[in-house]
Measured scan of single mutants.
Amino acid sequence: NLAEVVERVLTFLPAKALLRVACVCRLWRECVRRVLRTHR
């Protein structure tokens, strides 16, 4: 699944970079939201 791969990669990025990549597309924005939720 593409979303799972994107989420896996996003887990390695710092928070500032996550906010930046959330603007790329809807899929990435949803993935960033899930990554941020799991880090809390």
Rank of each mutant, 00 (worst) to 15 (best):
N1D: 04
N1W: 01
N1C: 01
N1T: 10
N1K: 05
L2K: 03
L2A: 00
L2E: 00
L2H: 00
L2D: 00
L2F: 11
L2P: 01
A3S: 10
A3V: 10
A3K: 15
A3E: 10
A3Y: 13
A3I: 14
A3Q: 11
A3D: 04
A3N: 09
A3W: 15
E4V: 10
E4Q: 13
E4R: 15
E4S: 14
E4M: 12
E4H: 11
E4G: 13
E4A: 08
E4N: 07
V5F: 06
V5K: 05
V5I: 08
V5S: 04
V5G: 02
V5T: 05
V5M: 11
V5E: 01
V5L: 11
V6S: 02
V6L: 11
V6D: 00
V6R: 02
V6I: 14
V6G: 02
V6N: 00
V6Y: 06
V6Q: 01
V6A: 06
V6T: 03
E7A: 12
E7I: 09
E7T: 07
E7W: 12
E7K: 13
E7F: 07
E7S: 08
E7D: 03
E7V: 10
E7L: 09
E7M: 14
R8P: 00
R8A: 05
R8D: 00
R8Y: 03
R8S: 03
V9K: 01
V9H: 01
V9N: 00
V9Q: 00
V9D: 00
V9E: 00
V9G: 01
L10M: 12
L10P: 00
L10H: 01
L10K: 11
L10T: 05
L10N: 02
L10S: 04
L10E: 00
L10W: 11
L10G: 05
L10F: 10
T11H: 11
T11Y: 04
T11I: 02
T11E: 09
T11K: 13
T11W: 15
T11D: 07
F12S: 07
F12D: 05
F12M: 13
F12P: 03
F12G: 15
F12V: 08
F12R: 11
F12W: 12
F12C: 07
F12E: 05
L13D: 01
L13S: 07
L13I: 14
L13E: 01
L13K: 03
L13G: 06
L13T: 05
L13Y: 09
L13R: 05
L13Q: 02
L13F: 11
L13P: 02
L13A: 09
P14E: 15
P14G: 15
P14R: 15
P14W: 11
P14F: 10
P14S: 15
P14L: 07
P14K: 15
P14T: 13
A15W: 06
A15C: 06
A15L: 06
A15Y: 03
A15N: 03
A15K: 12
A15I: 04
A15D: 02
A15V: 07
K16S: 07
K16G: 09
K16F: 07
K16M: 02
K16Y: 03
K16V: 02
K16R: 13
K16T: 06
K16E: 04
K16I: 00
A17F: 12
A17N: 07
A17C: 13
A17S: 09
A17D: 05
A17V: 13
A17H: 04
A17G: 10
L18C: 09
L18K: 15
L18W: 15
L18D: 01
L18R: 15
L18I: 08
L18M: 15
L18F: 09
L18A: 10
L18P: 02
L18E: 02
L18G: 09
L19V: 13
L19W: 05
L19P: 03
L19K: 15
L19T: 12
L19E: 14
L19Q: 15
L19H: 13
R20Y: 05
R20C: 08
R20I: 12
R20H: 06
R20N: 11
R20D: 01
R20T: 09
V21M: 13
V21I: 11
V21D: 03
V21N: 08
V21H: 03
V21A: 06
V21R: 10
V21G: 08
V21C: 10
V21W: 12
V21E: 03
V21K: 12
A22C: 08
A22G: 08
A22Q: 05
A22I: 05
A22D: 04
A22S: 05
A22N: 08
A22W: 02
A22H: 03
A22Y: 03
C23H: 13
C23A: 11
C23D: 12
C23S: 11
C23E: 14
C23W: 14
C23Y: 13
C23V: 08
V24H: 02
V24E: 02
V24L: 09
V24S: 04
V24F: 10
V24W: 11
V24R: 07
V24A: 05
V24K: 09
V24N: 08
V24M: 07
C25R: 14
C25W: 12
C25Y: 10
C25T: 14
C25Q: 14
C25I: 13
C25A: 15
C25E: 12
R26G: 01
R26I: 00
R26W: 00
R26M: 00
R26Y: 00
R26H: 01
R26S: 02
R26C: 00
L27V: 09
L27N: 10
L27I: 12
L27H: 13
L27T: 12
L27A: 13
L27D: 05
W28Y: 04
W28M: 14
W28N: 00
W28R: 01
W28A: 14
W28K: 01
W28V: 15
R29V: 04
R29Y: 05
R29Q: 06
R29S: 04
R29E: 01
R29F: 02
R29L: 02
R29G: 05
R29D: 01
R29K: 11
R29T: 05
R29H: 03
R29N: 05
E30W: 14
E30T: 09
E30Q: 11
E30K: 14
E30V: 07
E30H: 09
E30P: 01
E30M: 12
E30C: 08
C31L: 15
C31W: 11
C31T: 12
C31F: 15
C31A: 12
C31E: 03
C31Y: 11
C31K: 13
C31D: 00
C31G: 10
V32F: 09
V32W: 11
V32M: 06
V32E: 00
V32K: 09
V32Y: 05
V32G: 02
V32T: 05
R33E: 05
R33F: 04
R33M: 07
R33Q: 05
R33Y: 03
R33D: 05
R33N: 06
R33T: 06
R33G: 07
R33L: 04
R34G: 03
R34K: 12
R34S: 05
R34E: 00
R34N: 06
R34F: 09
R34I: 04
R34L: 07
R34M: 05
R34D: 01
V35Y: 05
V35T: 04
V35F: 09
V35D: 00
V35G: 02
V35L: 12
V35M: 10
V35E: 00
V35I: 10
V35K: 06
L36C: 10
L36D: 01
L36I: 06
L36V: 09
L36P: 01
L36W: 11
L36M: 12
L36F: 11
L36H: 01
L36N: 03
L36R: 10
L36T: 07
R37F: 06
R37A: 08
R37P: 06
R37E: 05
R37I: 06
R37W: 07
R37K: 10
R37L: 04
R37C: 06
R37T: 07
R37M: 06
T38A: 12
T38M: 14
T38L: 14
T38E: 05
T38C: 13
T38W: 14
T38R: 13
T38N: 09
T38G: 12
T38D: 08
T38P: 08
H39M: 15
H39G: 14
H39V: 15
H39I: 15
H39S: 12
H39R: 13
H39K: 13
H39T: 15
H39A: 14
H39E: 10
R40M: 06
R40I: 10
R40K: 12
R40P: 07
R40H: 02
R40D: 11
R40L: 10
R40W: 09
R40A: 11
R40F: 04
